[in-house]
Design a protein around this nucleic acid. Structure first.
Lengths: 339, 339
DNA sequence: TTGTAAGCGTTATCAA
DNA sequence: TTGATAACGCTTACAA
């Protein structure tokens, strides 16, 4: 590793003082045109780049936002990130991303690192394992230390900070109502266990939609997937055992697994069973049949989250507002699977 | 933003010197058991966290690896990242990820930021727009400044650094030979324009496989997609106009679009047309029919890249080895689409 | 117009 | 056993 060019070296080389170099490079008029040109030329020639680390230390600001997400293979998170980056770049912030891989330990590690000076604040979706454990001390600690945090998607009620969430219940409700309108009467749901907050809310929306239409919830039609690795077979079994004319999957994985299983059973989608899915991927439009989905507007979510965070970062001390939770509305995209 | 707890404040609070605090917290035996306990208790109570920025400045090392990728919605990149993280964490490095969104400007910006002190080195897959422009000055500059870089996947020949690439040609060759073995004789390829290096190599592999079996390449059967937004219709048209019994898609997107189009035309896969795809996603196993793919071993790629980088980072100055290019081999995963 | 010095948070060296 | 000081690279008040 070659040592990098510093102001000091430039100063020594050109026989001026460090501060002269600093000022010249920042176009201060107090430095004579002459020296300024000389210094800038030299810096350009040797490709001087100011050391952000030193700047951060000096300013006690990094102008960097840290994003911490559970998984990276997620179209939904990708769109959220795009939204965050858009706002961040507009406001002169950089963005770095860390991935917890849904592991509690990774999450803690990454948060520690980011909190250790790399970023001014966080935008976080907590890991599944963290939600399962219910151990949020790392989040609270970091906030307590004065680093602003915005939780999104996989949020935690008991952590006090700004939050942005999808209106999961509303979305699920919309999905199920759509199936009802299409004439489905025995509608099943394939969802996650309840400690995953979004799964829980989507299940609630499912119940609400049915109840609002006077249809009692048949618990036999509620499948909660515990173990993702065994989801395929669980779903297949569920479909074999229960007779349904509509299925609501809380994510694309579950929904496509269901269609696959139905396909194997010789059951036609949408002719015999209609399917609506919550969408977190680009798979929906591509699948055969293409999936009717509840669309999550990830970019909007990212933009809101970034704005919330930047507002905190730039708020004058003392005039902080109370924490907000913003809802992002979903929308129904009709495709082949529910025709 | 609350100011964070520093050594200085602890020192003032406990009426000792900064250096005593520093030493106590790092368990130096020169500090008496007594003071040490006192200081550590205080630090723990108020949740002291050393400022990494200051440490980085002091050590001129961040122990952080920067990854710069074109897109984040990519299963393949996700697996590479996982591989990098594995090795990095084992060696005590952190990882931060930046996304160029395939934009040249984003790539330059992100690289500048990372080069500005946030990381010790890079692992980069260049943006499509960058490959198109052929402008690599930002990469060269950063390397010239002494920051080690490893290019992977979307590499650039003319940039001198370590590289890790998939053996795309071999993989493509394997795919086409598989189709030939299954009896296909009119095999089409759906690929990218040639400035995308992987597309080019895969096209070469396609030609090589055919030629090695004495089958002349029919240029009518080579579809180069220019504009991703119009890929669907281009592919549909291609399939309507050309008669084929085998199709090789250089990515899942192309392959699934093809199957979709065939499905609409009433052509059965694999009965009438067999399909093999290069795989960069989790879609393959899930699709109906599931896709026979050339698997890319992203994790292995990530591990190799991380090892190359860390070797550079920890090499004693003067004893640097010449730059290496490592090949990652692919493997064929047979599924329904080529049965 | 240029330079000196202090400070950001930390650690290493040396002195007390 | 503890503390003062310098240094990492940079900016900025202030002095020259």
């Amino acid at each position: 590793m070659k040592p990098k060019l510093t102001l000091k070296q430039i100063a020594r080389e050109l026989d001026v003082s460090v501060s002269t170099v600093s000022k010249a490079l920042r176009d201060k008029t107090e430095i004579s045109e002459d020296t300024r040109q000389k210094i800038k030329a030299f810096a350009k020639l040797y490709n001087y780049r100011p050391n952000n680390i030193a700047l951060s230390l000096k300013n006690r600001k990094t102008r960097t936002i840290g994003i911490l997400i559970p998984e990276i293979v997620h179209h939904f998170y990708a769109t959220v990130i795009a939204g965050i980056e858009k706002v961040a770049h507009e406001q002169g912030y950089n963005v770095i991303i860390c991935v917890s891989n849904n592991s509690f330990d990774h999450e803690v590690m990454n948060l520690e690192m980011l909190a250790g000076g790399s970023t001014d604040g966080f935008i976080v979706a907590v890991a599944k394992e963290t939600q399962q454990r219910g151990d949020y001390h790392h989040l609270k600690e970091v906030i307590h230390q004065g680093m602003p945090m915005v939780l999104f998607d996989r949020i935690v009620e008991e952590v006090e900070c700004d939050k942005v969430i999808i209106d999961d219940e509303e979305g699920a409700c919309m999905a199920v109502k759509h199936l009802l309108e299409r004439g489905c009467r025995r509608i099943g749901i394939i969802t996650t266990v309840d400690y995953v907050s979004v799964g829980k809310l989507r299940t609630q929306g499912y119940r609400k939609a049915l109840e609002s239409c006077g249809i009692p919830v048949d618990e036999q039609l509620v499948l909660k997937i515990e173990d993702m690795d065994r989801s395929e077979e669980q779903i297949a079994q569920f479909l074999r055992e229960q007779k349904m004319d509509g299925i609501f999957g809380v994510n694309e994985e579950f929904s496509t697994s269901a269609i696959r299983a139905l396909h194997k059973m010789g059951v036609k989608v949408p002719d015999q069973v209609r399917v609506v899915s919550f969408s977190d991927g680009s798979l929906s439009a591509r699948f055969i049949p293409s999936l009717t989905t509840i669309n999550q507007h990830g970019a909007e979510m990212g933009e809101k989250a970034a704005n919330l965070l930047i507002n905190r970062l730039e708020a004058d001390p003392g005039e902080e507002e109370p924490y907000k939770t913003q809802m992002i509305h979903t929308s129904l995209v009709e495709r082949e699977s529910s025709l």
